[in-house]
């Protein structure tokens, strides 16, 4: 099991009980990846099923949401395939909210 810190920023916290910071335990037989984390978030953390579309589009993070792994753009870290480690900080920031 791996424990990571997950942050929902830039207005995304509205679909997570207005909590910006969450500690999340991801369980998986193999080393869990960011993909596993996203599945976990969708399954267990988004209360209202209608809100899933705010976060996910076509099976992945919606365009317009920035995903950072330890402050690095996830594209530079292997995207969904990145293997989580204890203490990692994964942040999701909406660029679409407010102006």
């Amino acid at each position: 099991m791996v424990t990571v810190k997950v942050e929902f920023l830039g207005g995304l916290d509205v679909i997570f009980d207005k909590q910006r910071i969450h500690m999340v335990n991801v369980d998986s037989s193999e080393t869990p990846t960011v993909k596993d984390l996203i599945d976990y978030i969708v399954k267990n953390m988004i209360r209202n099923p209608n809100d899933v579309d705010v976060f996910i589009e076509n099976g992945t993070i919606r365009p317009g949401i920035l995903t950072l792994i330890n402050d690095t753009d996830w594209e530079l870290e292997g995207g969904e395939e990145y293997e989580l480690e204890d203490g990692d900080v994964i942040s999701f920031t909406s660029t679409l909210h407010g102006g």
């Binding site: 920023l9 207005g11 909210h97």
Partner: peptide, 11 residues
Amino acid sequence: HYKKLDYFSTE
């Protein structure tokens, strides 16, 4: 984000 600026993002 990197500068940790305090901004408001509710619609």
